[in-house]
Design a protein around this nucleic acid. Structure first.
Lengths: 200, 200
DNA sequence: TAAAAAAGTGAACTAAAATTCACAAATTGA
DNA sequence: TCAATTTGTGAATTTTAGTTCACTTTTTTA
């Protein structure tokens, strides 16, 4: 039955995604994925050539989703400043809901093939930020010099802040209040960084 | 002979460091480390309890070194702006000389014990930046709101920019000229981000 | 409804890498 | 110099996880 097969396929992908969100790619083993999806390990290989293919699909989809959200903001009717603020805020807030997944998406090492795929996806995130910055530069809201570097720094700041507190003592940080404040600070940092600086 | 043993120990550590700089922690296997150091794999275990201990020593030392350099800048007689500029510039330039090592130091996943150690070291980097920022806030040069977040963003930007171009097509980017320009942009980004913003 | 095809299983196979250990070589100290 | 201790070796063992495959179950179809 077509339908059951599609369900299996999705169950495997979702299971993999959940495991990655919990413990990173290192914890997403075929056995574990299969078990959690309620199928045998062998079956995974009926649906995917190998483990990399499973991961590629999970990671690409997850990043694509974030990219869509960012693009939507980039194409909205806000001022460039507001766009950048919203993009950073949205990205960081979402990422903070599963920081481990964010880490895996952005940083966890993977084999060459997957790395290649992921790189493309990551470029899309940068691309989205770049568009916001480029528009802002043209209309005079932003005053940075090099578009590419500025975008890199923004993406760096907004991803690093999420994964850094991942370390030993999880969850120490955040009740919702702090979280909102924190996110606001990050967005402000990024906006300031690229804003036109008035001479004193 | 004490001396020979110390040499062996150092050879093992250096070998590990070099392998990490070339291909990351994933390529620093006990066999490879031992071979490159000119000793047998078994000997590594006479000097270290296990692989983690080797890596802990390599990574901690490497980060400590960077921290010293940053602290030196933080304690110099420059203005806060100049300090931050110099700190970012220095860190990024140095990191760009072995981006793979920088990645391993900052991001490559490791076991819990090593992660714990590394986290402490990373905190020291942030701490160093924090001191620069805190001083600048007090003397009115800087105008960010939350010290911790600002430091996190700076560290995020300056580490991310180094590791990002690590991906598929290495070395595409940088002849020395571009490199200098690039580094300058990053430092400017960070300084702008925390500088007092004049109202328009 | 019975043969053919496809989906599903999980134990066995493989591979890679950390770690151990029985042994050899070198060093020490009496 | 000879026994005891320490340093050094590397093949064998262990561990962990990906992958295969002979077999079972289910579905399709003629």
């Amino acid at each position: 039955m077509q339908e059951r097969m599609e369900q299996n396929r999705q169950a495997i992908l979702q299971s993999a995604r959940e495991l990655i969100a919990q413990g990173g790619i290192k914890d997403a083993q075929i056995q574990a994925i299969a078990e959690r999806a309620g199928v045998s390990s062998g079956l995974v290989y009926r649906y995917f050539d190998n483990k990399s293919q499973v991961l590629i699909e999970v990671l690409s989809e997850a990043i694509q989703h974030e990219v869509k959200i960012l693009n939507h903001i980039a194409e909205s009717e806000l001022s460039s400043k507001q766009k950048l603020d919203k993009a950073v805020t949205t990205f960081v807030k979402r990422a903070m809901n599963s920081p481990q997944l964010a880490y895996s998406l952005m940083f966890e090492p993977v084999d060459a093939e997957l790395e290649h795929e992921r790189f493309r996806s990551k470029q899309l995130i940068k691309q989205s930020i770049k568009e916001i910055l480029a528009a802002g530069k043209i209309n005079g809201e932003f005053g940075f010099e090099d578009l590419n570097t500025a975008a890199l720094c923004v993406v760096g700041a907004m991803t690093f802040v999420v994964i850094e507190p991942l370390n030993p003592s999880r969850g120490v940080m955040f009740e919702q209040n702090h979280k909102d404040y924190f996110v606001k600070q990050i967005a402000e940092f990024c906006v300031n960084a690229v804003q036109v600086q008035e001479e004193k």
